[in-house]
Nucleic acid binder design. Structure first.
Lengths: 233, 233
DNA sequence: CGAATACTTGATTTCAGTCAAATCCCGTGG
DNA sequence: CCACGGGATTTGACTGAAATCAAGTATTCG
């Protein structure tokens, strides 16, 4: 069991490799250590909501968060997932807009909160950090643009294959080749941009083609190559 | 007639209001003035190509450029347009990736070329510029994310209406309410993410509903409100 | 243990893509 | 000036992928 109530420290954060905050000089890290807030969220709780103003951003310490936009009839479109070491909620601060997505945990999650003011200061004072954040944003932009192409031109089957590959890339598989993120069929559908029933049908097709194996929300990857062929990665 | 061969100067650039370069201090502007290259492109020419490495970015002085990704069977998906005062090609430099779109002129275009090295220097040396560029990138990211939702959840009719509204916003209408960008049906389809024939059918529907009037590639807006209702802006 | 939620499967519908053919339009060269 | 050719546009017929609707089963959780 994870000790949920440990207050994470930036200085010895286990996400050091991936976290952008590590690009700050040590003295700044220490300051953040005192100024930041630490928030705990149970599974299925909202961190911030589309259309609201974010007065700070969050650095995920543990857990997984889905970022989604809500369509007219309330249908979610998942834009991306964030996991330990990722930051969320910074876009709207920097663009001076309202949040363009809702952030909701899909697992118990611990996140550090850093104020908008601090973010601006960090960008202004530390060019290395600014460059790194810019890089991150630009990569995200590239991913979103790729997503536009995919949704516009690929079939649901291809997109589902691709999303599975993306999830494998992002969350990995365990020793038994089981994908290490456990989404509902509806969440998968909301990533792919399709109906829940379509995802179900396609998953069971993939299963009869011996590409995957299903046990509830666990997805075991049997034939990665075939999956790559389907998604034409 | 436009005098195509005038060398544009940053110092008295007519796009001053919108151009991000104006956030640089005057002495830096003058340096750029000497270091930049000026390129002229005829209509339908490629400025840079998806998958290549950009060693600089472009500031559009006049003309219009479409930025698109190419799908498997060569079908274009237009991501956005850039007009005078906009910059293009900077994303891949900052993310350290290859260009994720192709930039092609849809009108005769003049663009200033500034090296990748210079861009990095500008971001590092001028926090105000860095902030502004970050803001721009974050806005683009918000727009791309919105686009994902739209393509995933809206009908082609709704998307076409929305694209028309977006074009009106971006390029305006003249005194006769004629949209000031002239796209082929195919280009419209490549924005909406649909087939050319579908765009044609829907445009003529809009026409019989007295929402628009068509004269070749000229689109006259007769009923903006109705269009907004269709796009549920 | 019961209600609620998630999942599955089948039947039907529909939106939009594809294919095909005709027409329009525009620039070019005779 | 006009004929020609090629691209763009339009319209119609057909097809098919995926959404919706519906009904039943399985799981989960308080």
């Amino acid at each position: 069991m994870k000790k949920v109530k440990d207050i994470p420290s930036c200085l010895d954060c286990t996400n050091a490799k991936t976290c952008i905050l590590k690009k700050l000089p040590p003295e700044e890290m220490e300051k953040i250590e005192y100024e930041k807030g630490v928030h705990f969220y149970k599974k299925n709780n909202i961190i911030y909501r589309e259309g609201n103003r974010n007065n700070g951003f969050y650095c995920i310490n543990s857990g997984i968060v889905k970022l989604y936009k809500t369509g007219l009839e309330g249908k979610e479109q998942i834009i991306r997932f964030a996991k330990a070491g990722n930051i969320i909620g910074y876009r709207s601060i920097l663009s001076g807009e309202l949040a363009c997505t809702t952030a909701k945990t899909i697992e118990d999650t611990t996140a550090c909160f850093i104020s908008a003011y601090k973010l601006t200061e960090m960008v202004t004072k530390y060019p290395v950090f600014a460059m790194e954040l810019m890089k991150l944003t630009c990569k995200e932009l590239g991913e979103s643009n790729k997503y536009i192409l995919d949704i516009a031109q690929k079939t649901v089957r291809e997109r589902l294959a691709e999303i599975l590959l993306l999830l494998i890339d992002n969350f990995g598989v365990d020793s038994e080749n089981i994908l290490q993120i456990f989404l509902t069929r509806e969440e998968l559908a909301n990533m792919v941009g399709t109906a829940t029933e379509s995802v179900i049908r396609l998953l069971s097709e993939f299963k009869s083609d011996n590409i995957i194996e299903l046990k509830g929300r666990k997805i075991k990857i049997l034939n990665l190559q075939q999956l790559q062929r389907l998604g034409s990665y």
